[in-house]
């Protein structure tokens, strides 16, 4: 199964951790990283992602300019044939329980991972969406 990841994070260390975990647990996968949510949204909108069986968006919430929740709102306005290809996992250090609760109800949001993003947490996410782990 071919997996394609879109990582939206604005600090080097978080990008590094996400890509490193994908590399270690899945091996072969397409990874595209974005520092801002609007750039990621643009990429998705123009349908630029490579062909894959599953598309997963790893999304930080606290981003400059457009934050994670606005991203989700705009993402939901995309046509079904695009957005149904994607599964979103929110990866955040936010402590705003009410906001996280609301976001977990959104249709395309599979899971919310509270940072730090560790091997264990990433593994349980992959298991939940039925992806085999190395």
């Amino acid at each position: 199964m071919r997996l394609s990841f879109i990582v939206v994070e604005n600090t080097e260390i978080d990008i590094y951790i996400a890509t490193e975990l994908i590399r270690r647990m899945i091996g072969e996968a397409d990874i595209e990283t974005f520092l801002t949510a609007d750039a990621a949204l643009n990429y998705i909108m123009l349908d630029k992602a490579p062909k894959a069986d599953r598309h997963i968006i790893m999304l930080d919430l606290m981003l400059p300019r457009m934050n994670g929740s606005s991203f989700i709102t705009l993402f939901e306005e995309l046509p079904d044939e695009i957005k149904d290809n994607y599964q979103i996992v929110i990866v955040t250090s936010s402590m705003n329980k009410a906001e996280l609760e609301r976001l977990s109800m959104r249709r395309n949001v599979e899971m919310i991972i509270e940072k730090p993003l560790t091997r264990d947490k990433f593994k349980s996410f992959l298991t939940q969406i039925n992806v085999d782990v190395n």
Binding site: T11, I13, D14, I17, M62, S93, K115, P116, L117, T118
Partner: peptide
């Protein structure tokens, strides 16, 4: 943010 980055 930076702390969770370091922990990860």
């Amino acid at each position: 943010g930076p702390l969770t980055g370091i922990l990860g």
